[in-house]
Design a binder for these strands. Structure first.
Lengths: 225, 225
DNA sequence: CCAAAAGTGTTCCGTCTACACCCATGG
DNA sequence: CCATGGGTGTAGACGGAACACTTTTGG
């Protein structure tokens, strides 16, 4: 455990979390004012340094847990960012992770304590360092993956209406989808189950609530929206 | 430039290069026997540590240049790998890059000096540390990207026959493609230009040589094989 | 003259797209 | 009773998949 690579230099490694939520039919990003120098006060993703006793994934999960109090969050690596001057303080190489959560799972009080806010992607301000680039890359990944991976359910409550699901697709893809065609496609996917529950909040008539059946999905192994 | 993040710990960061070539209708990977401890003698990707004065991309390009003497190589980040014990020596976080080169561009003498070999993917041995995982991930990326990005030309000489191009697709996708359908698709892509040159090496009749027109591709901006 | 690779079209089928109206209910 | 969102089917266009024979020429 000692001295193999002694002649080489070490650098700080951090993780940055691109946390997406979905609210009022919009994709939202969790950002806050940076609370340390350099860049104090700038809008920024939430991140943290990787410790000696944890892997990158563990660091990302720890950071997400610190921020949200949630575990078992859907999370994907977006990539490593390593420009020399990307951090104005010292050399820091960072690995960005994209996470999807249900905004309802995030305690408002905890959110305020961390000084972070849900901001619409349309209204995204300039972010610290290269964070905007990370966000762009993450959205590109979401768009490419949404049809081959059950992403969308992570942004919704356990029970959701088809209209909600469609809005998630529209928010991620950035384009409108035909309602009839969408529902036709959904019907062919057997791990999206109709439940007996009815949502009466958003419409007078009431909408059927659906559920993502994870076991069924894992058995399927063929996914294709 | 000093002391902002002093309380945190630094780690070694390296880059590993997953170099693909194409020869005898097979995808090949450039690997060699590791020449340092720990793991000396094990099959391994070629890599190197990231220096203080270079970005991740620069480190990857430098490493590729050291290995092959080539510049302007097609290169994509595969991802960061950061398990605590991934390297048996010390803690090293690594960023893997996938590169595609034309095997003919790689000088044999240089190759031997570095003690690396082209190995068929079918016959890939167990590699050092988590290198097999990197290779798997890189191939997955190639498969997903081959239809949205002009990857294949990087594995071929400037002039190539349609049969060669088809074999590249087959090697990457791991399945046979119908010749007529393939050539029909290629005809719809205007940045794959037929030249006046004829290849007489592989067939008695001779095959038309084609060229990838990069300028035309960049103007197009819509790619879809 | 024959082996070996190059080259070439058509048909079928399934998938995607466009498109408009009725239903149920709370206020 | 009406405004609001929920729910449903069909026809045409398009793209992908299957499929076999002729051409050229070096040896």
């Amino acid at each position: 455990m000692t001295g193999f690579y002694g002649e080489h230099s070490k650098v700080f490694v951090s993780v940055d979390c691109i946390v997406f939520g979905f609210d009022h039919n919009k994709l939202k990003l969790l950002i806050g004012r940076r609370q340390m120098d350099p860049g104090r006060g700038e809008w920024s993703l939430y991140g943290g340094f990787v410790r000696e006793d944890e892997s990158l994934e563990e660091a990302a999960n720890r950071t997400l847990y610190t921020l949200t109090g949630l575990t078992e969050i859907y999370m994907r690596q977006v990539g490593a960012f390593g420009a020399i001057d990307r951090d104005p303080g010292e050399r820091v190489i960072t690995v960005a992770y994209c996470a999807l959560i249900d905004v309802n799972d995030y305690d408002e009080k905890l959110r305020e304590e961390h000084g972070v806010e849900w901001v619409s992607l349309d209204e995204l301000p300039h972010l610290y360092s290269d964070h905007n680039e990370m966000v762009r890359k993450a959205i590109g990944q979401l768009r490419r993956r949404i049809n081959t991976e059950p992403l969308s359910f992570n942004l919704l409550p356990e029970l959701f209406t088809l209209t909600q699901l469609q809005h998630v697709y529209e928010a991620i893809l950035g384009e409108e989808i035909d309602k009839r065609n969408f529902r036709k496609r959904i019907k062919t996917i057997d791990f999206i189950e109709k439940t007996e529950h009815i949502d009466k909040l958003t419409s007078k008539r009431g909408a059927a609530l659906y559920r993502f059946n994870k076991e069924m999905y894992l058995n399927d192994s063929t996914f294709r929206l």
